[in-house]
Design a binder for these strands. Structure first.
Lengths: 213, 213
DNA sequence: GGCAAAGGTATACCAGGTGCAGAAATATCC
DNA sequence: GGATATTTCTGCACCTGGTATACCTTTGCC
């Protein structure tokens, strides 16, 4: 489809990568808030104005790498085998992510990943950006549920927000533990158990929640 | 406890209110992003520095009014009658909110409220701020569940994120409809039905989600 | 009334982000 | 291959949110 990307196109990609790489390197080294976009631009040998032509905000310098994941759950639901419940597909996908130590599950303890996670958590504006991400994931998943499982509008939205919320809670929990020094391999069994528990809760509802007091 | 707030204290409250009022007035009239903090400060007859002494960020000029609601769900759970399930308490509280047209349920169509909602939705930074709000509500609710229903750590967190997510989805749905012109009184019946449906889903789980395809 | 402390102000400053006019590089047409 | 049109990059000035500093005013209190 594009045997000839064209010089202009290639340079664009190159510049994009140069800026992104310079940004990540500097941010990991000194922290997100400690590095100005001017410094990033200088390191990438590009004007500040050009940097903003490629990345609309400073946060995007980091977050654009995760853009694919925004619709990941929705894609999993759409691509599920016939007669499989959406929830089952999402659960299996998450378990597979755990097995593969996919960073999105929070269960990857490579120093680079750990530092990136810490960097994001230390920068409020980046955390806020991640929340918007979640909202995007919810919308995409709601659509997928409507279109592939004939789920009514409201039910789809409700299911979507619940699933995404649980997904993130699990990942965050894993990431927290690894951030506190627990090795991924040690955490693995617990992460699997927690995942099973969480999806069982989703499937069976909160009825079981004690009513005492 | 304080029959004599003291002059200093009174002036502080007064200044606080003056700034907040000036801000809301200007924001409602011209839009959040169209008004600078300098203009708000000028309207409130206060220096910019003073404004930031009272409100840490521009967003807080709007959001501080909702601060109480951050822990509202958690308080409802803590204050529930004996042997009542947390979920029941939250549902009843939401239904009561609908009856009273509490703006937090999205079912208040007073022009002021409508304009405020629109203003918030039109300003990405305010939306982001609301998301942080949600996160705070989740934490508070998780604690309440742990402390009043002996819910284990993970279960409490999972339940909390689900409940808060559904709560917000319902409110947002109502707000959306009113924003599109539907009167609150017309929407009321549907809002109640949707609420019942949503909480039934929470209670019974997503098992029912069709597995077709 | 006088003094310490709290609170307010003016000013200057930093960082993220945008608008604009022109220079430089790339693509296109002859 | 060269002239031209188009895209992209750049430098610069500027706006806005937010902070630091240093100084002044008000309040509380003896």
């Amino acid at each position: 489809m594009d045997g000839k990307p064209g010089l202009r196109e290639r340079k664009k990609r190159q510049t994009h990568a140069a800026i992104s790489d310079a940004a990540i390197t500097l941010f990991l080294e000194h922290g997100f808030n400690q590095v100005s976009v001017a410094q990033v631009a200088e390191a990438a040998e590009v004007s500040k104005r050009t940097l903003f032509a490629y990345f609309p905000t400073k946060e995007d310098l980091v977050v654009h790498r995760l853009a694919d994941h925004e619709t990941e759950i929705a894609r999993v639901v759409r691509a599920r085998p016939p007669r499989t419940a959406p929830l089952t597909a999402v659960r299996e996908h998450f378990l597979e992510g755990l097995r593969e130590r996919d960073p999105i599950t929070g269960l990857n303890d490579h120093p680079q990943v750990l530092r990136l996670t810490r960097m994001i958590l230390d920068a409020p504006s980046l955390v806020a950006r991640m929340e918007r991400f979640k909202a995007g994931a919810e919308r995409a998943l709601a659509r997928a549920l409507r279109e592939t499982a004939d789920t009514p509008e409201l039910t789809a939205r409700l299911a979507a927000v619940q699933i995404v919320a649980v997904h993130w809670a699990l990942a965050q929990d894993n990431a927290d533990r690894l951030a506190h020094g627990e090795p991924a391999d040690t955490r693995y069994a617990g992460a699997v158990a927690d995942t099973e528990h969480a999806f069982a809760l989703l499937e069976n509802g909160l009825r079981q929640l004690a009513a005492q007091r």
